[in-house]
Design a protein around this nucleic acid. Sequence first.
DNA 1: TAATAATATTGCAATATTACGATAAACAAA
DNA 2: TTTGTTTATCGTAATATTGCAATATTATTA
Lengths: 110, 110
Amino acid sequence: MGATKTENFTTKQNAIATLAKALGHPARVAIMEYLIKVNTCICGDIVNELPLAQPTVSQHLKELKNAGLIKGNIEGNAICYCIDENAVTKLLNYFAQISIKLEKKKRNCC
Amino acid sequence: MGATKTENFTTKQNAIATLAKALGHPARVAIMEYLIKVNTCICGDIVNELPLAQPTVSQHLKELKNAGLIKGNIEGNAICYCIDENAVTKLLNYFAQISIKLEKKKRNCC
DNA sequence: TAATAATATTGCAATATTACGATAAACAAA
DNA sequence: TTTGTTTATCGTAATATTGCAATATTATTA
């Protein structure tokens, strides 16, 4: 035990969970927000922007990349990271869909 | 080490991370989707809808509730769970805001 | 009251995450 | 080539999560 039983859920459910999980840490939320703020990929100073050691930041970046939330390209001895708008769109659409469904129905409880 | 350094991030960043983390597991995504589908709070059969044992489901429900994504009321010997629309709205707004910011700026990289 | 039904809690094993020091790798510049 | 800069990886300790059997709790019903 201890491992998530991904095989018992739908691909879509797993996809949303993966994206959400990646954002399930304040450091990774902060990284996303910083990438939006600077609006460029030459982000060689992410480490200085976060209250974490360099290896930890590197690890968080890796997780964001694995989840598909950011894209990274090697650029000289610096790395060029930026947000993958596609992933943000997926999340936006998902919650919009939920919102619509919730609003459509008169909820008669709680 | 091993514990998230929440104190070094903003309240808002932690709030988003908490909500996202709660959805960072396919079982909890499935629970949310089931609650939307049935559109009622008399949800005494959630356990039967999931490929997990009863204690595990109960634990996931607890986490969703702690994160504020669902509300629960005791109703006889059953529990009445339903989605907290407020939380969904928070997430929707957050990603909408990001989307707007990304679109506003012509991205010149990646 | 006793039996039944539904959900919660406890306890524990397996696994995953978080964080960072040490070190490696890759490149630019001296 | 050596030095400095930047990011990645390794190794490891601390902590958290996942999952479930066993058990407890709570309320309904017989």
